[in-house]
Amino acid sequence: MQTQAKTSISFVKGLSFCLVCLWLLIAAFPFAWSFWGSFKVQSDFFSKADWMYALWGTNTIKETGSAFTSSGYYGAWIIKGFWKNFTNTGIVVFFTVLISLTIGTLGGYALARSGFRYAFWILMAALIFRAMPHITLVSGYLLPFFEWNIWGYLPTTIIVLVAMNQPFTLWMLHSFFLNVPKDLDESAMIDGCNRFQAFRYVVVPVMWPGVITAGLFSFLLAYNDFTVTVMLLSEDNETIIPAINSFLGTTQVEGKIMYAVAAVVSVTAPILVLVLFFQRQIVSGLTAGAVKG
């Protein structure tokens, strides 16, 4: 009886261990494969003869003399001007994060200290924005933007992204500031600070964990966005994600699909680094909504 229970437990354990291993493999393999393959030539990565070619780079050696080639990256970044799209993304992401965090911290602090229960309404707004396909909102924005002649510029896109992102940031920072004890700024005010000084000298030093988490999510939203950027930006101002999409059409015809593969890998790299450094914050942000309700 005792032994039977023990074996069944270890069986379940073994099964769940296998499941986890399988999942980790499925989760990681595509990235590893594409990264490895991006240094090969097309006839290896999309090998008609044998998929093992992609591993050893048989044709890559034939064509370039070495098992690794950076021609895909050269093609994407230099020939296709991917660096320009990357700069655009940098601008969009930087300002989106900056503006949403500024509004988010000030607004979140004010709402948290005002006493009235705004939380529900902010949460609702955040929820509605989360629920709505962004494309439905964009379809509403598009015609007015054309009429006002502000279509296609980076600032327009930044404003739209900030607007979509704001309810979530506001809600997140609002609940974060609720957890910062009120006594802290009250005691500062008794010591002779005014409201603003209390915020500047007492609250700001303790708010960074919350701000970093909110900032990460703004970053991800702005960086990953396809719907808004593809609709609202003209071709000169494209950010990386729509640029990859337009790559697909042209490179497939020219037989230079490796450019697109290289571009995709380049886009993934920053996210990898981000997760590496901020894993704890991302996890806490993802679960914040769930645990606090």
Binding site: V20, L24, P30, N224, V267, I271, L276, Q279, V283
Partner: peptide
């Protein structure tokens, strides 16, 4: 394992599906 698990979710949907 959490690090690896997060990747498919955080990577850009367009890019992830392309891969």
């Amino acid at each position: 394992s959490i690090f690896v698990s997060l990747l498919p979710f955080l990577v850009t949907p367009l890019v992830g599906s392309l891969i």
